[in-house]
Simulated assay, not measured.
Amino acid sequence: MSNTKITFKPSAKSIAFGVVGTLFFGVFAFKMLSLTWTVSEGTNEIVGYVILWIMTFIFLFFAISTLIWLLNTQIIQISKNELRISKPLIFLHKSIYIKDIKRVYQKDYKIKSAHDHKIINIYDGFKTIIVLKNNKEISINSFDTTDYNAFNKKIKQRISYYKEKNTETKEVSTLDKWNGISWLIFTIVTTIIVIWAFLIK
């Protein structure tokens, strides 16, 4: 079996969501922090400032969360004996020997949002769970990974070389690259409008 490394890059869609989310919530947080706050007459001053700080921290929380998601962007490499996961934006990498993997299985992977007390499906796909001998788990999903189907097949081929045979493989649709695109376009347009309104106008 060849020891050539096969590389699976992060999806542009995932990176775009991370960038847009960071900008969107970051702009709101920046605007809140840069404003001179005043509390309306008739409103308890302490309560007013508490509400303003809570709103600011909510925007900061989501800005930092999406930034962390972006910074954890992964590049995956599979060779005959090794699985290597790199996070180039934070200069981290992890190498796992294939023989140290106990099993591999799949689960559904969904990204959801709530609006008007309704749950909205933004993305439907799968994630591959890699279980190590020490029972730690590593999750690779079809939203973050380009060529997820190829990755899933390849890691199972490597595992079957050592132990598992005929493991079931579920594939994301060939239309998966468009899954969630409408939401991405909506968030990009909204973010541009917010940046223009807050920072440029």
Rank of each mutant, 00 (worst) to 15 (best):
T7N: 05
F8N: 02
S11E: 09
A16G: 10
A16D: 09
V19Q: 02
V20P: 02
F28P: 01
A29F: 15
M32N: 12
L33A: 15
S34Q: 06
W37T: 11
V39P: 02
G42N: 06
T43A: 01
V50T: 14
V50G: 05
I51A: 14
F59Q: 07
I64F: 12
T66H: 07
L67F: 15
I68S: 09
W69T: 04
L70A: 11
L70P: 06
Q74R: 10
I75T: 15
Q77Y: 04
L89K: 03
K94N: 13
I96S: 00
K99F: 08
D100T: 10
R103T: 15
Y105L: 06
Q106F: 01
D108S: 14
S113F: 00
S113T: 14
K118T: 12
K118M: 08
N121D: 15
I122L: 12
F126L: 15
K127V: 01
L132I: 03
L132Y: 09
N134G: 06
K136H: 10
S139C: 04
N141Y: 03
D144L: 01
T145Q: 10
D147F: 07
A150Y: 03
N152G: 10
K154P: 01
I155M: 05
R158D: 03
I159T: 05
S160R: 10
E164R: 01
E164S: 12
E168I: 13
L175I: 05
L175W: 13
K177I: 15
W178V: 11
W178Q: 06
I185L: 15
I185Q: 02
F186W: 11
I195V: 15
F198N: 08
I200D: 07
K201Q: 11
